[in-house]
Amino acid sequence: MTRLSVNEAAKKADYPLFIPFIMAGDPDPSTTIELALRMEEAGAHIVELGIPYSDPLADGPVLQRSAKRALQQGMSLTRAMELVPDMRRRGLTIPVIIFTYYNPVLQMGAKTFLDKVKENEADGVLIPDLPYEESQDLTVTAKENGLANISLVAPTSSTRIEKIANKAEGFLYCVSSLGVTGTRESFSEEAYTFIKNVNSSSKVPVAVGFGISKPEHVENLQGVCNGVIVGSAIMKKVEERLSELSQEGKMKQNALEEIKSFVSSLISS
């Protein structure tokens, strides 16, 4: 079976188009592979594979700690991408998006990076600190290689929404509210208005991220957008189960199942 592209997977999904984020190498590479597989089993349509970075400007405390643990394990952009073929061999079929800050990409070279994304059977990229103005060349090269460069819009994007939405590939990542990644209790009326506005400007499906952590968040967004992205809430579960996940055996399997059922509960809400 040929793998779906990010575009196809996003378009095909019924609400909620579900996109989990997992940090490569937290707590170790083999657990990352297991987690990716559990995400697909739980019903995820696309998975974001996070590359740990020393200075993650857009991330809150949970993902900062997660990145730190992964870096201590020696995780890098190259090694993280090399996990994807293993995931494929183990049966992962959904598209994988490499989520990385720009500096590691710059060191590798953008062209080499995109070649490796493709070579390692991943399907798209997301670079949170490479805004529209700085990412035009990369978006074009990615597209020529059948890869999607995911664009973001934020509540402050205002007049920028239209031009960003026009160039969006795969899905449009809509940042729910101001601030860094991490859980928020609830979303304001303004947030819903903003998301609706983005949804009406976008030709590709709109997925909302930043702060999605509970079934009712997902429920409340039905009819407002096409899906959700969940990162911190999942990596928080990983953090809570670190000791179990770090060893082999039944305890680890239980922890993985627990994370899977958390994700299932978000999807089926």
Binding site: P131, L152, A154, V175
Partner: peptide, 12 residues
């Protein structure tokens, strides 16, 4: 130089 920041800051 340039502007390598999250989208949230671009408008600011």
């Amino acid at each position: 130089g340039g502007k390598f920041v999250p989208e949230t800051l671009m408008y600011a």
